[in-house]
Design a protein around this nucleic acid. Structure first.
Lengths: 64, 64
DNA sequence: GGCCGATGTCAAGTGTGCTTGACATCGGCG
DNA sequence: CGCCGATGTCAAGCACACTTGACATCGGCC
């Protein structure tokens, strides 16, 4: 499950801490997801997609 | 996080066990998600959306 | 070189997604 | 009524999503 988080975040010149605050999780969680440590929960994925005005399928790529 | 699982499943005349097998989880997991006990993981939500040919946003409704 | 903000990562703890196994209930059908 | 498949639900256990706190590293800037 790859994602475009890091690109979208840096495009906007946000730090991991900035993004974490906007979606209500810890900075370590953002870092773990960007670096592929684990996948976000579904409600968290919805909040991220909403923030970037994208469909979940546009943010997260199913590589099985 | 509401979902349209039960409707889509019964439209196709599938049992919970049928659906569980198609997406690779236990029957109890399907039941728990249909009855709102908890939300599926993101990879599992992708499998369900793919099975029904829907966007994740069309299957799961964010009610926060 | 020395400072500092941003990032990566570890450890330990909590909550939840999901499992197997079991049992109760409901509805349709003989 | 009695049977049976489908559904709902409980308990116990495991894996993972996420937390706080801490520390190492990297890059830019003085």
């Amino acid at each position: 499950m790859k994602n475009r988080l890091k690109d979208l975040r840096t495009e906007r010149a946000w730090t991991q801490a900035d993004l974490a605050q906007r979606v209500g999780v810890s900075r370590q969680t953002i870092n773990a997801i960007e670096t592929g440590k684990f996948d976000p929960s579904l409600p968290f994925a919805f909040r991220l997609a909403k923030l970037f005005n994208l469909k979940i399928e546009e943010l997260f790529l199913d590589d099985q």
